[in-house]
């Protein structure tokens, strides 16, 4: 195959990961652990999309839980209430989310500065209140139940084990278009945008259009994850999609390494099970979670994977194991 150096590096990282994911269900058979792993995969999908936005366009969104929620609720309502085919509903949900993202992003991404973070934060809270108050449609704060499982080749994905393959399949496949987007001319333009908007604009990069597109794509990632979530759990509740979830998602990007796809993967895989692990500490869970986060952000702002990449680069093997790094190309 004719692959570029970056593409080979990416595949070199991806193949062991596929192997790891493929072997996991042989070792992990406990339903609870599988459940945590499945949620992790869905978070990876959202975080991959979010990383595209944060890493490339240099913008944060505190509204991705809302896009996650719109995906979940549109899927849930269409299938549970109206009996629409789940796969069709997933596409409809993605379209609806894309339109919402366009409506929020188009006016605010034209502005200099971090107005997107304020707008998405407001948007998330509005969506959350709507999910609670519009109870004819959404089931109110109790949520909406009876969402049917997805069916793939006649096989209903209604167990943790079966869903594992779909969730992690989606999470890994989701890395590919993200990686390709980063390394296409659009990706290069976006990185230029991240480094110097003025220089990018003067080279003829249509800043606004690219930013809005990447924002919409990143929202669609969240929406697809939301649809999968709804069909997996069979129930959606507003609390799952509140502003704290958005904060958690951005945190996963930061802890792993901003703008690095592997970083996001790692951040989601580290932070999703953490509260479950900390559950033994019961009441002190938030304190430990907050403290870990605080220490990481203060002392390791480049993220855990970012730090590893730096260490590898110093030894002269930079990028060999950690390809797909979006922020800088190594020779």
């Amino acid at each position: 195959m004719n692959l570029t150096v970056q593409a080979r590096r990416f595949m070199a990282g991806l193949l062991p990961l596929i192997l790891l994911v493929g072997l996991t269900p042989l070792v992990v058979t406990n339903a609870y652990y599988l459940n945590v792993l499945n949620v992790t995969a869905l978070n990876v999908l959202v975080v991959t999309g979010l990383n595209l936005l944060i890493g490339c366009a240099g913008q944060i969104s505190l509204g991705h839980a809302a896009f996650f929620g719109i995906g979940a609720y549109v899927s849930a309502i269409l299938t549970a209430t109206y009996g629409v085919n789940p796969w069709l509903a997933l596409v409809a949900a993605a379209l609806a989310t894309a339109l919402c993202a366009l409506a929020v992003g188009a006016p605010t991404l034209r502005l200099k500065g971090n107005y997107l973070v304020m707008a998405t934060l407001g948007f998330n809270i509005i969506v959350n209140v709507l999910l609670i108050q519009w109870d004819d449609l959404t089931g109110g704060s109790g949520g909406l139940t009876g969402v049917p499982p997805l069916v793939l080749f006649g096989l209903p994905l209604d167990t943790d084990y079966r869903f594992f393959w779909l969730a992690w399949g989606a999470a890994l496949i989701g890395l590919l278009p993200a990686r390709n987007l980063l390394h296409s001319h659009v990706g290069r333009a976006l990185r230029a945008l991240h480094d110097s908007p003025a220089a990018a604009a003067s080279c003829g990069v249509p800043i606004e259009g690219y930013k809005i597109k990447v924002f919409v794509v990143s929202a669609v990632y969240a929406s697809v994850a939301g649809s999968l979530y709804a069909h997996y759990f069979g129930i959606v509740t507003p609390r799952t999609f509140d502003i704290f979830k958005s904060v958690e998602l951005v945190t996963m990007c930061l802890v792993g390494g901003i703008g690095s796809l592997w970083g996001g993967l790692f951040g989601a895989s580290f932070l999703t099970p953490l509260p479950q692990l900390l559950h033994v500490f019961e009441e002190h869970q938030d304190i430990i979670f907050g403290a870990v986060l605080l220490l990481l952000l203060i002392f390791l702002p480049q993220g855990l994977v970012g730090r590893l990449e730096e260490a590898l680069a110093r030894r002269g093997i930079g990028g060999a194991v950690m390809p797909g790094d979006s922020l800088e190309e190594r020779p």
Binding site: D286, I287, I288, G290, L294, L297
Partner: peptide, 28 residues
């Protein structure tokens, strides 16, 4: 003050982490 990064995004999320920690402490 001791934050290793001057990136605004990191600093803003330090306040988010501080807020989570503070709420945990107040709850305790």
């Amino acid at each position: 003050r001791p934050a290793r990064s001057r990136d605004l995004m990191v600093l803003i999320f330090i306040t988010v982490a501080a807020s989570i920690l503070a709420r945990g402490l107040m709850k305790t």
